[in-house]
Amino acid sequence: MSLLNGILVLLVFQCFGEAIKAYFDLRLPGPVLGMFLLFIALCLFQKVPDAVAKSSQTLIPLLAIMFLPAAAGLFFLGAQFNDQWLAIIGAVVLGSFLSLFFNGLVMKWLSAKTK
């Protein structure tokens, strides 16, 4: 039962997030706003209820499979790439490579300094 209670809490916070997004016409996704609200609630409550911890531990490891349909879509994008495929793939592959390298250097250097 505690798993269902936890999932109920997550769904209710997602609903709050979607409601805020709709009311203020925000660009941030409802689930992200819901996460923000739950985070604030946890800070106020000062501890994580067992049910919420359980639902969180159940769902988070399953994130990888939830992204599978979107990842599979990459192989069916052909028509949209048109004559631009070289620029798109080049920018994404090289850009992501450089980004990871750049972020890693910046954060490693800063965290060494602040220690």
Partner: peptide
């Protein structure tokens, strides 16, 4: 692919609550 994607809405639905659930490790 469109048919596959639509059938898997059921799976992708859980991205929402799973995203909300990220608040827990964030708090911890």
């Amino acid at each position: 692919y469109q048919d596959y994607y639509q059938a898997n809405e059921l799976l992708m639905f859980w991205l929402g609550p799973a995203t909300v659930a990220l608040a827990v490790p964030l708090y911890q």
